[in-house]
């Protein structure tokens, strides 16, 4: 090691690398006439991000003097990390991500809450049984993604109903729905506004009606995707944050407006080429219900109570060690 450090050229390279690493985040500071910003989504381009895409495509960001690059998310993308590394200025993260990050000392601020109802729900066949009370889950085979949000939500529901793990069978869920198709599992977790549409259409073709089990209806309100930024952005570029949020909320409101339905579908089609239009139609309709549950609902409203409940759930399940008081980082920037 000593010998290596003595080598001048290696040492110089190391210093250069370190300097680069230190200086790198500063390169992405805004400079030009239109203020550049990067917006990292949580998941791939689909109906769940229609408003984000709409704001971009219809130049709503530009109208506010911003040059926003909307970046696709994915399983290994994490907007909170990117905010901290300076690679993004805005992002979408789920509530559990935000709370976990706060628990680990990350600095993050929630500026708007997109989903008012968590799209993560369970599909089942109502012909066989109905779920009117949580107790009805007893003896059922429940699909769950171990480690995922659905596990947290499901465990909370079970605990709420006093159902122990012995009373149900938990089935580990994968990408592939075969176990549900084959009736091996009674409940399968799905995203209500995206996968669920495709899945229920397939089952309907087979003559099997479907229903959805929505945890919110049983008092478990686990917050899903929200818009985030860093405290530094709020402190140093408050106008940018405001402009961004206004443009984004306008995008969402317009995208969900019934009058703009065809325009919104066209926007989606540009990014999601694989999904047939009639599916996109249904997906958009379902997304509307989750983000704007009532006509005229103010898109982006932060449901503080739900956030607090989400934190309590995670604390109860020991996913975080101490309270993070999430309400402190909920700073609504929505313009209404």
């Amino acid at each position: 090691m000593k010998g290596i450090l003595k080598n001048k050229s290696i040492r110089r390279t190391m210093i250069l690398t370190l300097t680069l690493m230190l200086v790198w985040p500063n390169f992405v500071e805004p400079a030009a006439a239109k203020e550049p910003a990067t917006y990292r989504l949580k998941w791939l381009f689909n109906a769940s991000v229609v408003g984000d895409l709409y704001a971009d495509v219809h130049n709503l960001f530009a109208a506010k003097g911003l040059d926003v690059t909307v970046k696709e998310g994915g399983p290994e993308r994490d907007a909170i990390r990117e905010l901290e590394m300076g690679r993004a200025q805005f992002g979408v993260a789920s509530a559990d991500q935000v709370i976990r990050a706060l628990d680990k000392g990350a600095a993050v601020v929630v500026i708007a809450q997109l989903f008012q109802i968590n799209p993560l729900q369970w599909i089942y066949r109502p012909e066989k049984f109905r779920i009117d009370r949580l107790e009805d889950l007893k003896g059922k085979k429940l699909g769950v993604t171990f480690g995922g949000n659905d596990e947290t939500i499901l465990r909370t529901l079970l605990a709420k109903a006093g159902i122990t793990e012995k009373d149900v069978t938990l089935f580990s869920v994968r990408y592939d729905y075969t176990p549900f198709y084959k009736h091996k599992v009674n409940f399968w977790p799905v995203y209500r506004n995206t996968q669920a549409i495709i899945l229920s259409e397939k089952l309907r073709k087979e003559g099997e009606p479907v229903a959805f089990f929505n945890p919110a209806e049983f008092g478990v309100r686990f917050v899903a995707n929200s818009v985030i930024t860093s405290p530094r952005m709020i402190q140093e570029h408050p106008a940018t944050v405001r402009n961004f949020t206004e443009a984004l909320m306008l995008g969402w409101t317009q995208a969900l407006d019934f009058n703009n339905h065809p325009k919104a579908i066209k926007t989606l089609q540009r990014f999601d080429k694989d999904t047939p239009v009639h599916i996109l139609d249904q997906q958009l309709n379902e997304t509307r219900k989750l983000i704007q549950p009532t006509p005229g609902f103010k898109v982006g409203t932060i449901d503080v109570a739900a956030w607090k409940q989400t934190e309590k759930i995670m604390l109860d399940q020991k996913q975080i060690s101490t309270p993070v008081f999430v309400e402190k980082v909920l700073k609504s920037y929505i313009p209404y």
Partner: peptide, 19 residues
Amino acid sequence: LLLKYSLNLSDYVIPSLID
């Protein structure tokens, strides 16, 4: 860790040694 401390990153991005 070098990256963490030189960029002052939180434990969420890169966990601390104690973590």
